[in-house]
Amino acid sequence: MTYVIGVDSGGTHIVGQALTLAGEILAQTQSGPGNIFLDQPQTISNLTTVVTTLLQKLGRDDCQYILMGIAGVETTGNGAQVAADFTAKWQLPTYVISDAQLALLNGLEGHDGTLVIAGTGSVVYGRQNQQMWRYGGWGQLLGDTGSAYQIVAEAMKMLLKDYDLGRDSELAAILLPAFSATDPKQAVKHYYQLSRKEIAAVAVKIAQAAAAGNQAATNALVTQANALADEVLGLISRYQQPIPEKIAFSGSVLVHNSFYRETLLKKLQNVHSKLEPIVVSTNNGRGAIFWSRWHQVNA
């Protein structure tokens, strides 16, 4: 059976999938980190392991091509060389794009449109007429609007405002235990000792409290969803008319929290009523099956 290989090479791990062009996963494997800017030798080694494992399992003769989306490749600027090296190594057409482009390709199934990613961090991507744009994604200090991290930061600011005004906060029962604190001052101390990922994990507790009727927690979610919507609208403003109507949602915050996703979408559709939402729940390696919609591949 003929197949293609899609590789999603991200900062924490690499996932490789062998798929039929109909999208059936024939095999999957993964390896360690895959940000080529942070550690090129290790990334190349891990990519080699992932692809070699799939080729050994399914046979090289039936593989049509390999598509890799590699974190950091836009910064290093060596995607063409990496693709050429791997093409020579396996004697198979190998294409290299960024992990963001692969996410866009998968989320929109090769069509033009917008991709909104909100997990620990956030970023917005768009594509129209073979041109790609990005909005946000500048890390927790300068961006990551609407991300799990910023939802927690928003809730903490609300808690501290209540504390400064000498009033009780609905958020105290959520945030003080989450940060192993007995009062807001201790919560701040512990907050600054935690990693970005550890802080972002508290967003689940805020979402649970909102679902249970905690109005302050709900307000934190709405504030960040609307802020993220503003960034999406900023990216959409760069499109030519008529704008692409497909919009894909990816990342844990948008995939798993329907209230948050619907709040975001409502603000977007107030401006662009014909936007068509897509929730992305597949690994981005699946994007390989849509590659021909971006570029002609002789398969």
Rank of each mutant, 00 (worst) to 15 (best):
F290W: 15
V253L: 10
T76E: 10
F37E: 15
M1K: 13
N226A: 07
Y163M: 02
M1L: 13
S122Q: 05
T120D: 06
G119S: 09
M156F: 05
G121P: 05
P277T: 03
D164Y: 01
A220T: 11
A217R: 05
A148G: 14
D99F: 06
N270Y: 01
S281A: 10
P93E: 13
R127V: 15
D164L: 01
A207W: 01
D144A: 06
S250F: 09
A220I: 07
E245W: 04
L67Y: 02
V50I: 09
G143C: 08
Q296F: 11
A203K: 08
G69Q: 05
Q269W: 06
T263G: 01
Y260V: 04
V50K: 06
P277S: 08
I70W: 06
V7E: 10
E245S: 12
L275T: 00
K157V: 00
D8Q: 09
Q91K: 13
F249N: 03
E231D: 11
L102D: 04
L105F: 08
A88H: 13
K267A: 11
D164I: 05
I199C: 05
G234Y: 07
S122T: 01
F259R: 15
L67R: 00
D112A: 11
G110L: 10
Q140L: 09
D8T: 05
Q91Y: 01
N298Q: 09
I97C: 12
H272A: 02
G136F: 11
Q186R: 08
W294V: 14
V280I: 11
D61K: 15
Q101L: 14
E262S: 14
I70N: 03
G10H: 02
L194V: 00
E198Q: 13
P277R: 05
L235V: 08
A118R: 11
T29P: 06
L38H: 12
G166C: 01
M156S: 02
A209F: 02
W133V: 12
M156K: 07
N78L: 09
I289Q: 12
K266N: 12
E109C: 11
